[in-house]
């Protein structure tokens, strides 16, 4: 695969470098692959490089989708029980 994890940009530095935080762990990485990074953005980090910005909106939407799954089952169950 490619081990990559999200981190929060805490400072931008010269030469396309930035400091990012994984919880309290800070690491200098390159942001040469992604344009217009701002402090506070979350980026996906792989081998010391930001690969992509993480979309908060999409993350929330995905989690909401996952959350709906179980509800649907329960509703179906209720419907069945209601019918019976």
């Amino acid at each position: 695969m490619c081990l990559a994890i999200p981190a929060k940009v805490t400072a931008l530095e010269a030469g396309d470098m930035a400091v990012v935080a994984f919880e309290g762990v800070k690491k200098r990485i390159s942001v040469a692959l992604v344009d217009d990074i701002d402090v506070g953005d979350y980026v996906l980090v792989h081998v010391g490089y930001a690969l992509h910005r993480v979309s908060e909106e999409d993350a929330m939407r995905t989690l909401a989708l996952m959350g709906e799954a179980g509800i649907l089952t329960e509703e179906l169950q209720e419907m069945k029980e209601g019918a019976a």
């Binding site: 993480v54 959350g67 179980g70 089952t73």
Partner: peptide, 23 residues
């Protein structure tokens, strides 16, 4: 860790497991 721990949540896993078994 943001964007990591949420996607390892056990309660959602159980919901999804039920849904998969259902479908």
């Amino acid at each position: 860790m943001k964007y990591v721990d949420e996607f390892r949540a056990r309660d959602l896993a159980e919901k999804l497991a039920r849904q998969i078994a259902h479908e």
